[in-house]
Design a binder for these strands. Structure first.
Lengths: 193, 193
DNA sequence: CCTTTCACATGATGAGCATCATATTATACA
DNA sequence: TGTATAATATGATGCTCATCATGTGAAAGG
């Protein structure tokens, strides 16, 4: 019995993993259930034994990828002196590597437009996870800045997600690197204590 | 003969107008050719007498809507004292009205994700128009700031487009208004001379 | 060893998509 | 008035999509 249960859990996980990759690479609409299953080494038919619907799958993808992003973004940040923390986070998030390696990075730039237009059902999850991300940043913002920390953190999220999204859309053009650099510099300057 | 030519021009214009509305409301993938034509009071078949392809249509939409955005964003901004100009632009762009009236506003939040993932063919137009928007902002940034104006302008575009995109995705939640306010305040503070 | 169960595959359903071939209809000009 | 032109409509093409009904094979538990 354990064998079967374990096997199912492993399959479930590998479907989720494949979806996490595809959703970040091609957005929600671009990640078809068939492709997700193929990415997991399976065929379409089995999908509904693991997820109630594509919507449930994407919901799970957003939760897990957002959490993993926070982990890697804030990893060992507290070892740095207070003034350098935000700079480190910005360097990690607004890097050429993060721009180019879609499938391992932040999911928001890949889905934000869709959630704003045709995929409104994910508004709740996105609100939760954006809120979590802002809370994470807030912890690391220097105290005693000129602005309420909550406000600063929220604007920082917008700058980061907006900047990475634009840099990805412009990937290959000269502007792309410029956008990353500009957001890094301005972000660090604006949120210094 | 003139009657016929004029009629065709008018139809062309109304197809473009309908597409401009739909692309901003539903994104590129969400704006089907059939719906665009219905919005212009026509049926699918006639479309290819006016545009070579859907791609050509969307290209035209991005150009015209971006230009109209710039016009309304910078309208009479020079009448204001130098220090107040950026604040006025931010107030216009990051407003609840602009967030809610998709079909009349900025096209970028509606298409940025798609251009970054599955609609890469529009990368060139988007680069051009983002560049134009940054140049417009650059003109109105106060001189003698701590940063190169080009860099400041580019980061400002990212903050604005990112902030509006997030606010639209979160529309209806408490976070949505907070994002707009945060970006307005931070933007104004960061780019004061 | 045999029966039950269930993960997964096969194949179908009905919808929506961009594009196009053909038909219609109204205007433009001889 | 009649013929040519071309804008738009009708209807079809072949595709992809999410979802599901049914089949199959292997493992679980008696």
């Amino acid at each position: 019995m354990t064998t079967k249960v374990e096997q199912k859990e492993r399959t479930h996980e590998s479907i989720l993993e494949s979806a996490a990759r595809l959703v970040r690479e091609k957005g929600i609409g671009g990640a078809s259930v068939a492709d997700v299953m193929k990415g997991a080494g399976l065929t379409v038919g089995g999908f509904y034994a693991h997820f109630r619907s594509k919507e449930a799958l994407v919901d799970a993808v957003l939760r897990t990828t957002a959490e993993r992003l926070r982990e890697s973004l804030f990893f060992e940040v507290d070892d740095k002196p207070e003034e350098a923390r935000i700079e480190l986070v910005l360097k990690r998030y607004l890097s050429a590597k993060h721009r180019d390696e879609y499938e391992k990075g932040c999911p928001f730039p890949s889905v934000m437009s869709e959630v704003g237009t045709t995929a409104e059902c994910y508004r709740g999850v996105v609100a939760e996870e954006i809120s979590n991300m802002a809370a994470g940043l807030e912890e690391h913002l220097p105290t005693g800045g000129a602005l309420p920390r909550k406000q600063a953190a929220l604007a920082l999220v917008a700058l980061m997600v907006g900047g990475l999204g634009m840099a990805r859309a412009l990937r290959g053009t000269r502007l792309s690197d410029d956008v990353l650099a500009a957001c890094r510099v301005v972000g660090a300057r604006a949120f210094r204590g």
